[in-house]
Amino acid sequence: MLKSDAGIPTGRILTVVAAAMVDDHGRVLVQQRPPGKAMADLWEFPGGKVEPGELPEAALCRELHEELGITVDPAALAPATFASEALGDRHLLLLLYTLREWGGEPQARHATALQWVHPPALRTLAMPPADIPLIGMLEALL
């Protein structure tokens, strides 16, 4: 098995995409992870895993449709920042995009709840460790 310079097997790098969906009031959408899932009850940016052979933007459009019932044009996704975090025997690479245009009204299909918050208020929410470093960049961007 190939290994990265850090000694992590390359097949153990988990690439995840997420969206900082921004409404007309400068608020960002977060969703609450449901009971029974890893990191249950934490608030996160909507998104999910990139499947093998899938482009990150295509994966995010797919995930947003599955999770929120919205449609997204990949051209509307603007790369914002990323986070890199150890996750057990794997390593998480989280790619965050900003999104200001989508079709439909977001619905909590796979989450307990949805919440629109201004970026500074994200600091008051319990969030997964990989999401926390993204807050400062969002505050600077928005």
Rank of each mutant, 00 (worst) to 15 (best):
His65Gly: 13
Leu125Met: 07
Asp131Met: 03
Asp89Ala: 12
Met127Ile: 08
Pro52Leu: 03
Val17Asp: 05
Gln31His: 06
Leu122Thr: 06
Ala108Ser: 13
Pro52Gly: 00
Gln107Pro: 02
Leu92Cys: 07
Val28Gln: 03
Ala140Lys: 14
Thr112His: 09
Glu67Pro: 01
Gln31Glu: 14
Ser4Arg: 14
Gly11Phe: 06
Thr124Ile: 01
Ala20Cys: 10
Leu55Ala: 12
Val117Asp: 07
Ala18Lys: 12
Asp89Met: 08
Ile135Thr: 05
Leu68Glu: 05
Leu95Ser: 04
Val117Asn: 05
Glu139Cys: 07
Val30Gln: 00
Ala40Ser: 11
Leu142Ser: 05
Ala113Tyr: 07
Leu99Lys: 08
Tyr97Phe: 13
Val50Phe: 01
Pro133His: 06
Lys37Arg: 15
Ala140Asn: 08
Gly36Tyr: 07
Thr10Lys: 14
Ala75Gly: 05
Phe45Ser: 00
Leu60Met: 02
Ala140Gly: 06
Arg90Trp: 10
Leu93Pro: 00
Thr98Val: 11
Ala78Gly: 02
His110Ser: 15
Asp23Asn: 13
Gly103Arg: 10
Pro9Tyr: 12
Glu101Thr: 15
Gly7His: 06
Leu95Ala: 03
Pro106Ser: 09
Met137Trp: 15
Lys49Asp: 07
Arg109Asn: 15
Ala58Met: 06
Glu63Asn: 12
